[in-house]
Structure formats: structure tokens, C-alpha cells
Design a binder for these strands. Structure first.
Lengths: 238, 238
DNA sequence: ACACCGTACCTGTATAGACAAGTCACTTTC
DNA sequence: GAAAGTGACTTGTCTATACAGGTACGGTGT
């Protein structure tokens, strides 16, 4: 279960703690080793232990209280109004037939750009899928997704005719936090061809990063034809 | 303009850099002082300068390249899709100059489509405004807005060089609820011209309806150039 | 023209040592 | 018993120093 040791010592310390959180040895609300504990246990300087815990706190994995200690943060699975819902459910809810086509499903090495989005080293193996989701025969979403197999293993063996990537990930890697970015773009031809949309049609791109156990579980670019897809939100202030 | 000095020295360093980014002294892509420059200029240790720059990089304000230097990140404007925020505040928060141009401001009768969105009878008088919001000289948003004068009276007498429509509405008609719809579109020539964007550029359209006292107070179509505007959301449990 | 190398500068990481401030439990004092 | 003090432990910050590794640039030799 334990991962190959990263070179940087503060990363080793992060993993030391993270592994125990992931394994359940340390549960939500429990106290994690203090900086000085880590100094003694892992033979690092306090500054290094401090950096590891500080970054884990910034990631939302830990909570630190000056004078008291460091604790595992409470993790809850979320439900959010702007969540990109399961595309299959969305389509079926509108009374249309849902179909998916798997264009690609393989393991690929991380490019530098991908490595950055994942916060991993370039060349790390990532599971890659390229799917087209159809609504009643028309493409509604092209989903280009990369999954970190160390966080969510078994992605390549998933049968996407029965399970969407989203469903799989929720089951395998409990969602801690997600980032969405929404843009209007003119996608490259490769995507445009799959979406079967004209060269003059704008597309809605949702870039999504999901986090689990303090690490990036998955990075997805979701392309939608601008003429057939929109995001809607109801906002209640306060 | 400058804020009271924070006590922690690394925060002082962060503000030193941030102020220059906000003031425009340092523009996107430009090089920021190196760690050693900051050591000499602000009389701090390199570890402290390092922490400041590292955190600003983590915040997305700067980009660091080992062996090369630290640079101001290219910043797309971020907006939180779930908040009803003020475009002027957003721009100023990014440290850029905000300016607005009033293209039209008049009373118009509701067309059938507008009447539907307002849930009113066609022909009802509506206050209409067409504004272009500029960020540092570049159009960032074209705001086409209709206001129901029975819910929010006095809209046409508002001075938009000092108050944004958003601010006015909040004051006159307390916001009860809002609806957002986000689309990617290729807008008509009229809008494209105001946005000064090319004919091949996709635009992000936010259609917003705000409700006050149970009625539709305002309907707005907000157009943004796809290359310079995006919506971002961090979705956290709880 | 081109490959190679040295140098200067940059960020990234790591350490030991130091002081401050917050929290808690225990003890002393009134 | 209540208030005040004390000490141990925690995180937060800061410094001086060090080495590694990346990058750019200019010079040198072929």
C-alpha cells in the first residue's frame, strides 16, 4: 500500500501522516504527531516537520491549533448545487436516452502540464479516458479525464457502459473537495469532431479537479456544445 | 492606499510584492524581485522571502521557475458562480483599474420574450441599461440589464460612474434570490463590438435574474470574452 | 558554425537554533 | 475554594547557513 518514497523529506513527512489518515489509523478529529514527535520519529528538523504539517493543513487534511496540537480534519462527502451532476442522470432526468462511447482508455505518462495539475512528477503513470456522452443520439459532453491510480486504483478496469467515471470515483476515493473552472472556448478539432459541432460554435468547458485524502484524485475537462448545454444555479443569499 | 502593516515579516514581504502587483507597477509576466533582492531590500532572511514568494505562488499570484526567477502570473478574472458579486469589486480586488461606459440608459416597453422573463405583461415599461465594464482599459463585461421600475424605482436616475447597477439594486430592492444560467455563445455583432473581441472568440454569457419581494427585480445578460474571464468555484463539504 | 564548459544567478530544500505566544494542568497562595 | 502563578508542551515565526539542481549567457576551443 505504501507508495514509493518521494525524494524531498518534507514530502516523506507528508506521506507519513497522509498514509495514516488514508489507512484509517488516524481518524477525523484525532490528534496527529506533533512537530517534535515527527522530528524524533523521522529524524528531520522541526522546520521540515512544520512545513509538512502546514501544507497538509492548507490542503484541508489537518487542522492546527496553536498551543494545542494538530488534528485530522473532519471530512464530509458533499452535495452541492453547482456540482456537475452525473451526466447520465441528467440526461435521463430529461427523458432522453443516454449512451456513452469509449474513445480511449489507457495508461499514459503525465506531461509536465498534467503533472502540475496533479501536483505529481512528470512521467508518473496516469489512467486516461476519453468518453463521449450522447443524449438521444447527439453528443452532449466530451469527457477527457485523467485519474491518479495511486489515489483511485482500478479505473482502467471499470466498465463505463454501466458506471460513469464520476460514480466510480465517488465510490473508490471519497470526495474531499473539488475545484471547478468554467470557460467559454473554441476547442481544438479533435474535441470538436467528437462533439459533432460546427466550427463556429462556442463550447462550454468545465475544468474539474477532485481531491481525495489530500491529493488530486482526478482531473477532467468536460466539453459541451454551447447550443445544447448550460449551467444553472439558484442562489439564496446568506 | 496601503494597508496597516501586518506584524509577521513574511506577511510584510507578501504585501510588498502584492501592492506592486495591485498598483500595476508589476504587470502580468513581469519578473518580480528575487529572494535575494527582497533580502537586501527588506532586511529579512532568505527563508522569509522564500516563504512569502512561495505562498504567493500557491495563491496563483506568482509563477516560480527554478533557476530562472519569479514572475507575475497571467490572471484571468475569477468569479464565483454562486455569489452575486459586483464586477467593480472583482476588478479592483484583482488590483486593476475599473471603468464603466454607459452605452444606453432609457425606458423601453417589454417585448414578449422580456415579459416572459419578468413574468409581466408585454408592453410594460422597463428601465433598460447597456453598460461596458472595463478592466484596465479592456472591456471585461458587457452588461445588458432590464429593471422592473415597480420593484426597484429610480434606476434611470442612477449615476453609474459611482454606483454599479448591482450596488443600486441591492440598496433599493433587497436581494431575495437569484438565478444564474451560464452559457458559451458567439454573441451578435452588437455585443461583440462593445467587447472588442474577435469574431472567432467564444464568449461566456451569464444570464441572471434577481428576485426581490417575490417579484423579478432585474434581468441581466452579462457577456464576457472567453479568453479573459472564467468562473471558478471551490466546492468544500459542509 | 557549433559543441562544450564555466560562471553567475535563481529557486528548492534542509538544518540548528532561537524567541514568542497560546493552552493546559498542576501548584501555590490568599 | 478561588485566584494567581508556574512549567511543560504546543504551534508560529525568524534567522543564518548550506548544498543541490535548474537555467541563461558568454567565452573558448574545435
Amino acid at each position: 500500500m505504501s507508495l514509493p518514497q518521494p525524494s524531498a523529506r518534507y514530502l516523506q513527512v507528508k506521506h507519513f501522516v497522509l498514509d495514516q489518515v488514508a489507512a484509517g489509523t488516524l481518524r477525523a478529529g484525532e490528534r496527529v504527531p506533533s512537530e517534535n514527535d515527527l522530528v524524533r520519529a523521522l529524524r528531520v528538523s522541526r522546520m521540515t516537520a512544520n512545513r509538512a504539517l502546514k501544507e497538509l493543513a492548507a490542503d484541508g487534511v489537518l487542522v492546527r491549533v496553536a498551543g494545542v496540537g494538530t488534528f485530522v480534519a473532519e471530512q464530509r462527502v458533499h452535495a452541492h448545487p453547482l456540482e456537475v451532476r452525473n451526466i447520465a442522470d441528467e440526461i435521463r432526468a430529461r427523458g432522453h436516452e443516454y449512451r456513452v462511447r469509449v474513445v480511449a482508455l489507457e495508461s499514459v505518462p503525465a506531461t509536465r502540464e498534467l503533472a502540475e495539475r496533479f501536483d505529481l512528477k512528470p512521467g508518473t503513470a496516469l489512467d486516461y479516458s476519453l468518453l463521449t456522452h450522447y443524449e438521444g443520439g447527439l453528443p452532449l459532453q466530451v469527457e477527457e479525464r485523467y485519474v491518479n491510480p495511486q489515489v483511485a486504483p482500478g479505473y482502467l478496469r471499470c466498465d463505463f457502459s454501466h458506471t460513469t467515471p464520476h460514480e466510480f470515483l465517488i465510490k473508490v476515493a471519497p470526495l474531499q473537495r473539488a475545484e471547478h473552472t468554467v470557460r467559454a472556448v473554441m476547442p481544438e478539432w479533435r474535441i470538436r469532431r467528437l462533439l459533432k459541432c460546427e466550427s463556429s460554435e462556442a463550447c462550454l468547458l468545465i475544468m474539474r479537479r477532485t481531491f481525495s485524502k489530500g491529493r488530486v484524485a482526478s482531473v477532467a475537462d468536460l466539453y459541451h456544445p454551447g447550443s445544447r448545454y448550460e449551467l444553472a444555479a439558484n442562489i439564496q443569499p446568506r
